[in-house]
C-alpha cells in the first residue's frame, strides 16, 4: 500500500507536492492521480502547488542565476581562500595583538599573517618567529635563507627543511626604497600551501616582508605561469611598490650574490 493511499487531506498535500515535483515513486504517482480524481477538494491544492513548482519559479529567477557574481566578491573569495585557514578562528582574538607586535612590517593583510602563523604552527613554516633587536620580525628559516643567498632569479632549488623537502624558486631581486636588497620567491613543499613571499636582507637575516599563501600546484614549476595568477599579480604589485627602480638585471644580481646579501 502506498503512502498516499493511507492518507487524507490535508496530510496528503505534501505527497501531492512530491508528485508534482517528481519526487514521488511510481506507485505514489499513480495513486496520487486517483486520489485527486476522487476528491475535488484537492484540485485547488494541486493548482497552488503546480503554480509554485520548480518549472515555474526556477525560470523566473533565471535572470539572477545568469548574473555573474560581482568582481569584489570573487576577489574576496579568491584572496581569502588563498590566505585563510582553520587557524584563523583560533588566532582571531589575538590578531590585533599580533599586528601591534609586528609594528610597521608590511604584511599583505591579516589573512596573510594568520596564514603565516598557521604554517608555523603546522611545522611547514620556513619563517620562524624570532626577536630581532628593537623590532620583532619574521625571519626566513635556514634552508630558505640559504637559497635566497645563492639562487638566481628564474631558477629553483630543492632544499630540505625540518618538515620535509621544499622547492624554492626566486622570481626577482631588487633594492627597496631604503636600499635594502629584497628577493621575491615562491616555495612549495610536499604538504601545505604554496607560498609567495618577499624577504629582505636585514641585518638580522632574511626578514619576511610579505607572505601570501595559495593552493598547491600538482607540479610546482613544470607549467610556466601555472600558479595562482591573482596571487602572482598581487605579490608582483607589492614588490613593485617596495622597489626602488627596476629589478636587478642578471649581471647586477650575479654580482650581488657574489658579494653576499647579509652583512
Amino acid at each position: 500500500m502506498s503512502a498516499l493511499s493511507r492518507r487524507q487531506p490535508p496530510d496528503v498535500i505534501p505527497l501531492l507536492m512530491a508528485l508534482i515535483d517528481g519526487e514521488a515513486d511510481e506507485e505514489d504517482r499513480v495513486r496520487g492521480l486517483e486520489v485527486v480524481a476522487a476528491d475535488p477538494r484537492l484540485i485547488g491544492a494541486v493548482r497552488d502547488l503546480d503554480l509554485t513548482g520548480r518549472h515555474v519559479l526556477k525560470p523566473l529567477f533565471g535572470a539572477i542565476r545568469d548574473q555573474p557574481a560581482p568582481e569584489h566578491l570573487k576577489h574576496m573569495v579568491r584572496t581569502m581562500g588563498a590566505t585563510a585557514g582553520p587557524a584563523d578562528r583560533r588566532l582571531a582574538p589575538a590578531r590585533a595583538d599580533w599586528r601591534a607586535w609586528f609594528g610597521n612590517w608590511q604584511f599583505a593583510g591579516a589573512g596573510a599573517l594568520a596564514a603565516a602563523l598557521l604554517l608555523v604552527g603546522s611545522g611547514i613554516a620556513i619563517a620562524p618567529l624570532v626577536r630581532a633587536g628593537a623590532e620583532q620580525s619574521v625571519l626566513a628559516g635556514p634552508a630558505v635563507a640559504e637559497a635566497l643567498m645563492s639562487v638566481k632569479s628564474g631558477s629553483e632549488r630543492p632544499v630540505t627543511t625540518g618538515s620535509g623537502p621544499l622547492s624554492i624558486k626566486v622570481v626577482q631581486t631588487f633594492s627597496d626604497k631604503r636600499g635594502v636588497a629584497c628577493r621575491e620567491y615562491e616555495a612549495q613543499g610536499q604538504v601545505g600551501l604554496r607560498q609567495y613571499g618577499i624577504a629582505c636582507a636585514e641585518p638580522v637575516g632574511w626578514a619576511q616582508r610579505t607572505l601570501l599563501f595559495g593552493p598547491r600546484l600538482q607540479d610546482p614549476w613544470k607549467t610556466a605561469g601555472g600558479g595562482d595568477e591573482a596571487l602572482e599579480t598581487k605579490i608582483d604589485a607589492i614588490a613593485e611598490r617596495m622597489r626602488d627602480g627596476d629589478p636587478l638585471d642578471q649581471d647586477a644580481e650575479a654580482a650581488r650574490i657574489a658579494k653576499g646579501f647579509l652583512k
Binding site: L73, M76, V77, M80, G81, A84, G85, P86, D88, A92
Partner: peptide
C-alpha cells in the same frame, strides 16, 4: 563566504 573560509 568569510564564515565558511574561516571555519573551513
Amino acid at each position: 563566504c568569510v564564515r565558511a573560509l574561516t571555519h573551513r
